[in-house]
Design a binder for these strands. Structure first.
Lengths: 215, 215
DNA sequence: TCCTTTTTGTTATTTAATTCACATGTTTTT
DNA sequence: AAAAACATGTGAATTAAATAACAAAAAGGA
């Protein structure tokens, strides 16, 4: 039922690279170029394109301009992409002002928090009280939220979001929340990534993971 | 040469779940429990354990206490895990005070920035000038860094880090930096995750990715 | 015009990851 | 004590993902 998340992630990277190439004045690109830039094999680039019916020209490669347009349609960039941020602690506020979002056409519609001291309804991106979240989501038809709240409140917020038209969440709390078919949760766990890196480093230094049976 | 990152990520999750179960007073756990909690199949849990030589008891499941200890050795949690944060803008400072790090035994040794206005050498986690980074890394034997700088300076910082004893980096800048064998880079790209979610949502709503040949 | 070069698009192959299935050792029940 | 119920551990089977390979189309000489 769900399309491979990995393929879509690669499409996003291809588009990103092409956007930058376009900015440099390039007009066409070969699967080899994209492969080098993204760090995959050229045949995988072509296969990914083939899955989505994206075609180029034998010998001539791909027209960057045209391919970006077609990719944007596939990736839904022709629609408005509004999100809200729940939890306006340091991480939440850092995300609210993150300029990577506007650059790719993602608009932060508002932030929400339970602490009255940090509310600011008049700001360009307002910080509203959490009690107003349900109406806001309904009225503005928000579908995606970032959850940047303490671990303790993450689950209960998720439960209430499930009763709204929110369909997907990026979760920064270190709790294991599971996606279901109609409610996607993508967790970002920085400490886990770091622990993973420490493991890879240590293993690379020659420490056997455990036994001799690991290739 | 590199062990599957995915397996290690699962080990980290298993350990996390068991840590919480231990806190609740549980003494043993079955592969089914861990599977449910982490969202994988029981046989995968057992196979993951088997790869690393982690054993339990037929019928009796796994002893939580003992398994956590053995996992911590495998995952390198018996060593000090110090990191530095490069770039102390909003995101960098949010990460500096993130309490998820101390909770899992990761210590932020210092932050670094080029802006003299935000330096603070006396703070519990000092913010030092970027010019001091090389000596600091050498002296404190730092192996892992978080990169939270603007896109424009990411690549040049990576290049200079490669000349130090840093072996792994978590990158928050939206640039595609590639790992090599002795220098790991793990990028966290929130906007990409969001775009991916938007795609999944839209596709789930019935929009065909492109043609009829996609299963 | 014809030959050579290049690069796509797709099928076949290989490799990797996950699930299945069941024999084996343990505990509980009767 | 024997039987029944369980849960692990692992090799076999399956599924999924990535690479390799190559025929066919386009472009550029000679």
């Amino acid at each position: 039922m769900k399309t491979q998340s990995a393929v879509v992630e690669r499409l996003l990277k291809y588009r990103d690279v092409m956007q930058k190439m376009k900015g440099l004045g390039f007009v066409r690109v070969f699967s080899d170029n994209l492969a080098d830039a993204v760090g995959v094999s050229p045949s995988l680039v072509r296969k990914d394109f083939s899955i989505f019916g994206l075609t180029g020209n034998k010998r001539g490669g791909y027209q960057i301009e045209e391919l970006i347009v077609r990719l944007n349609v596939i990736l839904g960039k022709d629609r408005k992409q509004k999100i809200i941020i729940i939890g306006c602690g340091k991480m939440g506020r850092a995300l609210m002002s993150y300029n990577g979002f506007p650059r790719v056409g993602i608009r932060v519609a508002a932030g929400f928090d339970s602490d009255p001291a940090i509310l600011d309804e008049a700001a360009p991106i307002p910080i509203l009280h959490i009690s107003k979240i349900k109406d806001f989501i309904t009225e503005k038809e928000i579908q995606v939220a970032i959850l940047a709240v303490p671990e303790s409140s993450a689950q209960s917020i998720i439960d209430s979001l499930k009763k709204t038209c929110i369909k997907g969440v990026i979760n920064f709390a270190p709790v294991s929340l599971r996606s279901s078919d109609n409610f996607l949760i993508q967790s970002i766990n920085v400490e886990q990534e770091i622990e993973n890196i420490f493991y890879q480093i240590h293993f690379a230094e020659g420490a056997t993971p455990v036994a001799e049976d690991v290739l």
